[in-house]
């Protein structure tokens, strides 16, 4: 956490200070720390099988499936709005609100994933009894590490232009992997249920 969020250095970009690698050191370290911490917690904490539930669905599994699907759809919106924001969408000029739009849909997507992660880690834990489950567990931990890393990189100035798209792509890939190994698998094996 930033001990001095209001400090003047935050408002005064100093592109000359430090190399790209130096600036990325803390975001990468913290992101990796988050991923490892989640994995260790998921492995060591004894799964309870019980977590707080959301009303209106037939069970905790369907809640997670639909929250994850919401986040997945918003993640696609993230990629599209980012393409527009960078002016790479053919025939589309970036509207002035696209940055705000990208930020807020991203926030909503992230907040949708949080209850899913809490249920996964608290009630089920880090599991490896088949390939799908192992991939899901690994990608789940990596996703929140990658997201943390991206959030910490965002305020930094003077970084190469390709960096944020690459990191954003990493976060997107993680979420897609999570969705494929959970929600899509659920829809295929159990049908589309609420």
């Amino acid at each position: 956490m930033n001990p001095d969020p209001g400090a003047p250095t935050v408002y005064f970009p100093t592109p000359t200070s430090g190399s790209t690698a130096t600036k990325l050191l803390i975001p990468i370290a913290v992101g990796a720390g988050v991923a490892v911490a989640l994995g260790v917690y998921g492995r060591l904490h004894e799964p309870t099988g019980i977590a707080v539930n959301v009303a209106g669905f037939s069970g905790p599994l369907t809640v997670k499936v639909w929250l994850a699907t919401g986040a997945f759809l918003l993640a696609i919106v993230q990629v599209l709005s980012a393409i527009v924001m960078y002016g790479k969408m053919p025939g589309v000029t970036a509207p002035s609100w696209i940055g705000t739009f990208h930020r807020w849909t991203g926030r909503v997507a992230f907040l949708l994933t949080v209850p899913v992660a809490v249920h996964c880690l608290y009630a089920v834990g880090f599991q490896s009894f088949d390939t799908r489950v192992l991939i899901h567990s690994l990608v789940g931990c990596a996703f929140f590490g990658a997201f943390t890393m991206k959030m910490l990189i965002l305020p930094k100035r003077g970084l190469p232009g390709w960096l944020l798209p690459v990191v954003g792509g990493l976060v997107f890939t993680g979420l897609v992997g999570l969705w494929l190994t959970s929600s899509l698998w659920f829809f295929e094996t159990q049908g589309v249920k609420f």
Binding site: L111, V114, A117, V118
Partner: peptide, 15 residues
């Protein structure tokens, strides 16, 4: 520029 940090903290609070 604190936005991303606030996003993270909000997620942490929800969790």
């Amino acid at each position: 520029r604190n936005g991303p940090l606030i996003t993270l903290l909000a997620g942490l609070a929800v969790a």
